[in-house]
Structure formats: structure tokens, C-alpha cells
Design a protein around this nucleic acid. Structure first.
Lengths: 144, 144
DNA sequence: GTTGAACTTAAAGTTAACTTTAAATTTAAC
DNA sequence: GTTAAATTTAAAGTTAACTTTAAGTTCAAC
């Protein structure tokens, strides 16, 4: 199939497919005599796997190491390291988001009662809110 | 105080403080005759509030509307809209991260038993994994 | 008044994952 | 053989929140 059809079947813009190839995520793409790309079903499968791994939160740069290539076998240890690293990142992010949510709920609550009473939150109240939900000492920032 | 001291006290690089000013988050900064910035305690407070709100996940662009300015009052409705929008984003993200975590745990489990058995995961197994944890119809992507 | 640290500016660089552009070429249908 | 849609390339643009650079200026201590 041509790139347009692959794009349609994979729900991925053709420009993105070309970009993945350029980044080394898709290799061995066939060309016609004139130079246009032709794909078979395996390319669609590979694209779908790339998209799946992306949806699991992996960076494009991590994906080649996770997927078996025609050339070389998968490095089990490296896959595990990458996978466990991502799991740790997710747990950090989850904790950070829960904290953010609690802070925001508290802030909304404070604001509502302040406004009802006809005044504004003081700077101190806002800062107290922050202190109440302070990050753990290692300060897990905002990633992803 | 000079910008270096504000930087130290707020744990924020001076370049970032200048950047915030340029972006309109810090206004009314005093200058000496020679042109260097001088700050008082209120600037530190304002900076801390900006950092707090950032830690709650707000974009810099949202922050002026959330903070009371010397000039104009806070627009309650706008604050609530921004705040509720952020809460919705957080819930979407939390759901997406939980899904990612479940998928990764399942993937790790599958890989371990495959490798123990001396073979690799098939493409189909990976795709089945994806389908098992498919996103809800509206397809909540990866933000933040 | 000298000196060295701290400060000033505007502009360019960084990161990831694309998207857009422009101009040329290929393909497929007729 | 014509034509319009699809494809090709390299390079530049996009986004957010900064950081870095370079070259010049000010500050504060001595």
C-alpha cells in the first residue's frame, strides 16, 4: 500500500510516518522505481506497536530498544530497565497529580467561602495551602 | 534586595525571574538610577505564589488571571473556570496514567514468563495488551 | 578610583514530537 | 498523453518554559 493508505489505516498522518522513518523507527521501507514508499501489513503492525508503546508513555527514543528489529534481538535487561523506569515515573507522576488535585480542591473550597463572605483570599492563605500539601523532600516536579 | 538575593530566597534562577517579568507575571519592579532591579518582600511573596500555582499544574499564561494584581480585581468566574478546567485535566491525566500503569504491569508480567519459557512476545500479544486497556471512545491522549 | 562580582539587554538555543511549506516528481485514471 | 491527486525532499516552523550567550554596564567594597 502507499503511504496515504497506511496513514488512513493507522490513523497517523503521512508526515508522522515519514518522521518515524527518519528517526529510525521504521526501517526497510520498500520504494517503487520512481521513489515512492510502498508498505505491507507488517509496516501497519509495526506502526500500531509504536503507537501503543507511545500510549503507554514511552518516548520515541525508547521504542527501538523495546521492539524486536529484523536485524537484532531484544535486549531483555534493557527492556526491563526501560519498563521499570517508566513505571517509576508513572508512580511519581500519580503522586504529584493527587497532591495537585487535593490542593486545588482545597483552594476552590477556600475561594468559595471567601467570596461568599465578600472578600478575597490573602496571599498568606494561598501560601499556607501550598505548605499544607508540600512536596516530599526530593521535590517531585512536573514531568511528562 | 537585588535580583540575586531574590533568586536565592525564592530558589528561582535570576534568568527565570527576568523571564517572568518579561512575560508580564511580575510588574512594577523598581529600578536603581543605573538600571538594576530592586525588590521588596512583596515580590518574594508574588514569586512564591507563582511557583505554587505552577506546582498545582497551571500554565504560566493562566496565572495572571488567578492572582490579584495591584491594578484590577480578580475575576471570580474566570478563576473558577480555570480552576475547574485544571481539575478536569488532572482527572483525565490520572485515568490515563492508571491505564498506562496497568498496561505496563501486564506487559512486564507477559515478558517475564515469555523469556523464562525461552521465547519472545509476539506482536499479537503486544497488540492484545493494548486492546485490553483501550482508551475510552473519546481517546484521552497524553497531555501535561 | 579600581576592581571583580553582579547585573543589564536582546537574541538565539534547548527539548520532543511533530507539522508546515515549497517546489518538484510520481502515480493512476482516463 | 494529459491531468489531478498523491507523493517526494529538505528545511523551517511550532509549543512552553526556560537557559545560554555575548557584550556591555553597574554596584559595592576597598
Amino acid at each position: 500500500m502507499r503511504i496515504g493508505e497506511l496513514a488512513a489505516q493507522s490513523q497517523t498522518p503521512a508526515s508522522t510516518i515519514r518522521y518515524y522513518e527518519q528517526q529510525g523507527l521504521l526501517s526497510g521501507v520498500q520504494r517503487t522505481a520512481g521513489g515512492s514508499r510502498r508498505y505491507d501489513g507488517s509496516a501497519l503492525l509495526r506502526l500500531q506497536m509504536i503507537r501503543s508503546l507511545q500510549n503507554m508513555g514511552f518516548a520515541l527514543g525508547d521504542i527501538p530498544a523495546l521492539l524486536r528489529d529484523e536485524q537484532k534481538a531484544v535486549d531483555h535487561e534493557r527492556v526491563m530497565t526501560t519498563l521499570n523506569g517508566r513505571l517509576e515515573d508513572i508512580d511519581t507522576l500519580l503522586a504529584s497529580l493527587q497532591r495537585q488535585r487535593d490542593q486545588l480542591h482545597a483552594l476552590r473550597c477556600l475561594l468559595e467561602s471567601s467570596w461568599e463572605a465578600g472578600h478575597c483570599l490573602s496571599d498568606e492563605q494561598i501560601l499556607a495551602l501550598r505548605d499544607q500539601y508540600l512536596q516530599p523532600p526530593d521535590s517531585a516536579g512536573n514531568q511528562d
